[in-house]
Simulated assay, not measured.
Amino acid sequence: MIDFDRIRPDRLPALLRAMPKAELHIHIEGSLEPELIFKLAERNGVKLAYPSVEALRAAYAFTDLQSFLDIYYAGASVLLKEQDFFDMAWAYFEKAAADNVVHAELFFDPQTHTERGVPMGTVIRGLEHACRRAHAEMGISASLILCFLRHLSEDAAMATLEEALPYRQHFIGVGLDSSERGHPPEKFARVFARCRELGLRIVAHAGEEGPPEYIRSALDVLKVERIDHGVRCVEDPALVRRLAAERMPLTVCPLSNVKLCVFKTLADHNLPALLKAGLVATINSDDPAYFGGYMNDNFVQTFAALPQWGAREAWQLAHNSFEASFVPEAAKQAWVRQLDQVFAAAAV
């Protein structure tokens, strides 16, 4: 047993950085830093609406999810070739390795690219190559989750799925992202039923800007195995009890929630309430290039804003990330042993 009380508070920031962790809510297009956007734009002859890296970064003042998405899709316009997708993912993996992320499940939005004429194979091959190389060279376990854009139609999602099936061996599951308001999960009931038939893992964004009812719909209609965000569940106590009883993971993104005005500050975040309710809450970076931080930034800044939290909560969040991951049980247990070793070494 780890004696959490013996871990001094001043050691906590270093411990948060050093502990192994899994990232389960990362939009790989959202890791595209302005410097790389400009590099790829020059390489591919794409004209940007911003004159400089500084001007683009200055535009990252979002009032809600849609104001972010407008810039997000503009940034993705520079991604045209397989090498571009590789370079983007590789840049993320370098940061993930530095943050002691041992496993990452990367969301990608093929419709953002195929609608611009980029072939599905170009997108998936570039990302898969980066995942393979990250495992070989950095020891990071990585997999891909194909996300449907919920502001588009279900027919478009179904067509995207069929287009991706020749590359089925390269992605483990499907998700649902983009504008939440006005696009409830049940809009995509048929395509998710098809995905379940194919044996794909199922996740969906719900309860970020959308109401708790969207979380229920994701559970009951889409039959998800994880809820991405899910922070508005606290508005429905019965739903909170259900999520806890079913050990349904929530992939929470603190810096993203503040940047998109879901919470005013990190100190206002309801993560403490989620953990106290026994939910399998995790910390993730979402779109780190746009929201001001990768995994360790999210951990360190969140804990700094929540002085009531200590080593016990840090261990629980990392443990939850492994429990919620889509990997064999043996891999989860190996990572938990690593986690325990790091905390045991700090408790001296």
Rank of each mutant, 00 (worst) to 15 (best):
L200Q: 04
P249D: 01
V191N: 01
D177R: 06
L219P: 01
I227S: 07
K264F: 00
I227H: 00
K264N: 12
S141G: 14
I145H: 03
L222A: 12
D228S: 09
S256K: 05
R190K: 12
R232W: 12
R196F: 12
L250M: 13
A142W: 00
F171M: 07
Y167S: 09
H170F: 14
E246R: 07
R168V: 05
V174W: 00
R241T: 06
C253F: 08
A156H: 10
R190N: 05
V258R: 05
V221G: 05
L200Y: 00
R247H: 15
V231P: 02
L260H: 09
V203S: 14
V258C: 00
I215N: 02
K264Y: 11
E246L: 15
S178L: 11
G182W: 15
A159F: 09
T251I: 05
F192D: 05
R216P: 09
I215S: 02
C195S: 11
P184Y: 03
I202Q: 03
C233I: 01
R232N: 06
A238N: 04
E180L: 11
L161H: 05
L198M: 08
P254N: 02
L198H: 08
R242I: 09
S179N: 11
E197S: 08
A164L: 03
P212M: 06
M158G: 14
C195I: 03
R247S: 13
L219G: 06
C195T: 07
H183P: 02
A189P: 14
L176H: 04
R181H: 15
L239Y: 12
Y214I: 02
Y167I: 11
F188G: 15
C253A: 12
H170D: 13
T160G: 06
I140G: 04
I202C: 08
K259G: 00
C253R: 06
S153L: 11
L250S: 02
V221N: 15
P211W: 14
G175P: 01
E186Y: 14
A238S: 14
V234K: 15
G173M: 08
P184G: 13
L250I: 09
L198T: 09
S179M: 13
G175K: 04
H205S: 11
A157T: 04
P166T: 05
C233S: 11
R226Q: 04
C147F: 06
F188R: 02
I227Q: 04
L161C: 06
K264A: 12
V258T: 11
R201N: 12
V234F: 13
H205I: 08
F188D: 06
R194S: 00
M158L: 09
Y214A: 01
C195H: 01
A157E: 00
L219C: 03
L176N: 04
P211M: 06
A193H: 14
G173P: 01
A244D: 09
I215K: 05
A244N: 02
R241Y: 02
H151D: 14
M248Y: 05
V262N: 15
A156V: 08
P237N: 10
R216S: 03
A157D: 01
D228A: 12
P185Q: 06
A189F: 01
G210K: 09
A159E: 10
E197T: 10
A193Y: 08
P184D: 02
N257T: 10
